[in-house]
Structures are given as structure tokens and as C-alpha cells.
């Protein structure tokens, strides 16, 4: 199990990208995702599923996640979430 120690962020607001912010959450509270996307009706559930699966693969069970999507592919979502979480796992800010 991996714990987030601090807020972490990755991505940009350019098209085809997304901005991911993750923050520590109380143990047992699960992964809570707030999503803003121009495609929320069509792909909202899919985006949330990719975010959640990526965090779970990394062993993160509890997190507050804010996603601002700009039309990113799943591979981009996975990369951005992974790095935001890795940054949040660091003990101190770089």
C-alpha cells in the first residue's frame, strides 16, 4: 500500500493533455475524483475508470483527485496520473 504524503500535480492545460492534481485523503476514504472535461458526457466514466485503475495499480487506495481534461487519450491519462501520484508520494517537495 502506498500513501500520499503531499499534494502532487502533473500535466498541462493544452489540448490532448490533462491536468491532474492528487492530494492525500483519510485512510479508508477511497479515491474521490472530481472531473472537468469537454467530453464528460461521452467519456466521463471511462476517464474516471482509467484514473482509478492507475492509482490502484500503484497501490494507492485513498486520494483526492482533481482532473481537468483537455481531450487526452487513455495513455496520456495513465502517464499523468502516475507521475502526479509519484510526486505526491515524495516526502519532501523537490
Amino acid at each position: 500500500m502506498n500513501v500520499l504524503n503531499r499534494p502532487g500535480q502533473c500535466g498541462t492545460m493544452e489540448s490532448n493533455d490533462l491536468m491532474v492534481q492528487v492530494a492525500p485523503a483519510e485512510q479508508g476514504s477511497g479515491i474521490a475524483i472530481t472531473l472537468v472535461s469537454p467530453m464528460i458526457k461521452q467519456y466521463g466514466k471511462q476517464i474516471e475508470a482509467v484514473v482509478k485503475a492507475t492509482l490502484q495499480e500503484m497501490g494507492v487506495a485513498d486520494a483526492l483527485v482533481q482532473v481537468t481534461d483537455k481531450g487526452a487519450l487513455d495513455c496520456t491519462i495513465r502517464a499523468r496520473v502516475r507521475v502526479a501520484a509519484e510526486r505526491a508520494m515524495q516526502k519532501e517537495a523537490n
Binding site: C75, R80, V83, N94
Partner: peptide
């Protein structure tokens, strides 16, 4: 320098997927 981590993961995911 501050984005080396995000670039390498983005590139790896792109190669794997596209």
C-alpha cells in the same frame, strides 16, 4: 529538468499504446 519524470512516462505510455 522539472518535467523529466512526466516526459519519460508519457513517452513510454505512447509507445505501448499507439
Amino acid at each position: 529538468i522539472g518535467e523529466k519524470d512526466s516526459a519519460r512516462h508519457l513517452v513510454a505510455e505512447a509507445i505501448r499504446t499507439i
